[in-house]
């Protein structure tokens, strides 16, 4: 193998524990069967990302994409497994190195409403980190912030305003500007363009691609918009209920999806040319991450489910060069 990948996840799991509340605890004392609930948000995921690569991450709402993104961005510690940055376990990095890695990996958050401090002006939100980390000095800061704002299509004359004075899409661009302002090497984009109209979306996506060419920026691109993912990504990772179910180079995936969930996804994509569509409900039962079904997590919804699928979880394995899938149909 050549040089170590920029980022590698090795058997990463992240579980959230939900302890019973007071009423639950009392009920438990009284003998009721109250259990602590555990959500396996991310369940044994391994993944590598090479420098300069764009990896699209797609999957059902609640399947653990944001959680995985947060693990990558050092916001969550994995419950199990290792996160390697330039080949080194991030858990073992010391002070300065850990700070450096944290700065080099930035996350653009899904929720522009919750992720901006409402009491800070836009200029402070964007300018704080570059100033603290010495990317701009006091005199140059104003021009630096204005330049970043212009790059994401925000009028710099807005810089003395507070987040609540902006529309949803404008707030999202503030979040994008904040992440790009510290000159990261790796950006986790969590639904970064979902709140933008398609023309501004095009502008931001073109900016992402330009930064990639100029600075060799690497992206983990989380999105529900398969059109965007197809346009942008080199490789796509599909998750379902905490697990990776398929990975493939983008063109191959869209040409011939290997996993039944991926096939379902692609067939549900609305098209500009289909009018008066009769949208379809999900067939079968939508399983819960609190209580995932045994065997293949997708079996309650899978049109090809067999007896074996209800018992044995399929492992992710190579189904063609450069492609993996977790499905018994490929045995």
């Amino acid at each position: 193998m050549s040089a170590a990948p920029l980022l590698a996840l090795e058997h990463v799991s992240k579980r959230f524990v939900r302890a019973p509340d007071l009423a639950g605890k009392i009920a438990k004392v009284l003998g009721a069967d109250v259990r602590t609930e555990i959500v396996r948000a991310v369940d044994d995921v391994s993944l590598t990302v090479a420098k300069g690569e764009v990896v699209g991450l797609v999957g059902e709402s609640g399947c653990g994409k944001s959680t995985l993104g947060r693990v990558v961005a050092h916001i969550h510690k994995p419950t199990e497994g290792r996160v390697l940055w330039r080949g080194r376990d991030t858990a073992g990095l010391s002070g300065a190195e850990a700070r450096d890695a944290a700065l080099k990996i930035q996350m653009i958050f899904q929720d522009p409403f919750a992720s901006l401090n409402p009491r800070m002006k836009v200029a402070e939100i964007i300018g704080e980190a570059p100033y603290v980390h010495g990317l701009a000095d006091r005199r140059g800061l104003d021009a630096y912030v204005a330049d970043v704002m212009r790059r994401v299509g925000l009028d710099p004359s807005y810089r003395q305003r507070y987040p609540h004075q902006f529309s949803g899409g404008q707030r999202q661009r503030i979040g994008i500007a904040r992440a790009l302002a510290v000159q990261p090497e790796f950006v986790v984009c969590d639904e970064a363009v979902a709140a933008l109209d398609v023309s501004i979306q095009a502008q931001v996506l073109n900016l992402f691609m330009e930064l990639r060419r100029e600075l060799d920026l690497t992206y983990l691109f989380i999105s529900h918009d398969l059109g965007v993912v197809e346009h942008l990504s080199d490789r796509v990772v599909i998750m379902y209920l905490g697990r990776v179910v398929e990975t493939a180079p983008t063109e191959a995936l869209f040409a011939e999806p290997a996993h039944p969930y991926t096939r379902g996804l692609l067939s549900a994509v609305p098209r500009l040319t289909s009018r008066k569509t009769a949208f379809r409900s999900v067939e079968g039962e939508i399983p819960s991450p609190l209580n995932p079904p045994p065997g293949c997590h997708f079996h309650p919804r899978c049109p090809h489910a067999m007896e074996r699928c209800r018992i044995e979880a399929p492992v992710l394995k190579e189904v063609a060069p450069g492609r993996t899938a977790a499905c018994h149909l490929h045995d």
């Binding site: 999957g59 529900h224 996804l265 999900v282 939508i286």
Partner: peptide, 20 residues
Amino acid sequence: DEPTTALDVTIQGQILAEVQ
């Protein structure tokens, strides 16, 4: 207001079917 942008397309389909 932007009700389904946070949803995957299969669940989006479910909501749109419900709304229809």
